[in-house]
Write a protein that binds this DNA or RNA. Structure first.
Lengths: 176, 176
DNA sequence: GCAACATACATGACGCGTCATTTATTTCAC
DNA sequence: GTGAAATAAATGACGCGTCATGTATGTTGC
């Protein structure tokens, strides 16, 4: 979705600030990525919603809770695991609490904090949702990829995540 | 609605399992993808918002308009290009119109329809926003990838997109 | 022991995205 | 032509996500 490509060669070796536009290859890749990501997320959300009444966000929260021995976590732990904004998590937990998927429990060690506890209803919800959801993930995503491609994809995602993490502390965030 | 875990042709046959759960490699890749995608989208949105007052959605609409000779498109053309839901596009165009980024123009050929026209303000907005935005896309995304990886990524995204498209017309999507 | 600061979490406002529905027009069968 | 169905687009309701801010508790320097 970038602007006109530079007519230039396919060699892009320009470090950072210098190259304003994406070349033709990059543009195609970027557009394909954006479209794929948007459609995939929409598909996963819709399927989860229809079959289980959960959103993808709900699902991820519940997954992390069920991954935990006591099925309870401090919000800041969930925040770290999900890489969400704090207020997003807070709002979302409020809504999930309202629907009975999780409960809030006071934290004796730290008066400021709390625990998010999985309810029985929450456990049943994700138990019922998981097979269908994983089926769709597999159908649209993994069934189209070889194991090598899956491995490469993980490496790329991790690398880009690292770049995003690196930028978090730095002051010179300018790009223009 | 819970579905019986009947092993249909669309779900992978898993030896010895009712539920087609992801194996360890797939799970790591999937979580890495989800985290990367979420963080990257948040970063791009934030930078665009701060530097230009645009969202990524605004940006994509404006890109498609500027890609057009007359800088005007029918909403259904935009919808096809963006692969958005119709009501999302309609709502978004309403908001962009309110902000003066686009205008609505009646369509003489088809009384039901309209044209979305780029305004001067809209053109200035994307012109101002583009270098910074592309800089961030490059910084976090393409600078971390080799040309081979970019090419592969495009292929994977296109392939997955194809699977999503294929499923659109089929009735046997779910519903056991 | 107290001011200054940091941390954990909540909240209100507001823009965004989806679903369901509505309106207006066009197309097509007959 | 007339009625049925398809198409273009808008709208209201409602949940989601971000920003800015608020509140309570913990920590630290002195």
């Amino acid at each position: 979705m970038e602007r006109p490509s530079r007519p230039g060669p396919s060699e892009r070796a320009v470090p950072g600030h210098d190259a304003p536009w994406l070349d033709a290859d990059e543009q195609r890749a970027w557009r394909a990525y954006l479209r794929m990501q948007g459609r995939l997320a929409a598909t996963l959300n819709r399927q989860l919603q229809i079959e289980s009444g959960l959103s993808l966000a709900d699902y991820e929260v519940l997954v992390h809770l069920t991954d935990t021995p006591e099925a309870r976590l401090r919000p800041y732990e969930l925040q770290w695991a999900l890489q969400w904004e704090q207020s997003r998590l807070s709002h979302h937990l409020t809504r999930m609490r309202r629907r009975g998927l999780v409960e809030r429990e006071e934290c004796s060690d730290d008066g400021r904090g709390a625990f998010v506890v999985l309810t029985e209803k929450g456990r049943q919800a994700i138990t019922a949702a998981a097979p269908g959801h994983v089926g769709v993930v597999r159908r649209f995503f993994f069934d189209g990829l070889s194991r090598e491609e899956v491995a490469l994809l993980e490496r790329l995602a991790t690398r880009i995540l690292g770049r995003l993490d690196d930028a978090d502390g730095e002051p010179g965030d300018d790009a223009g």
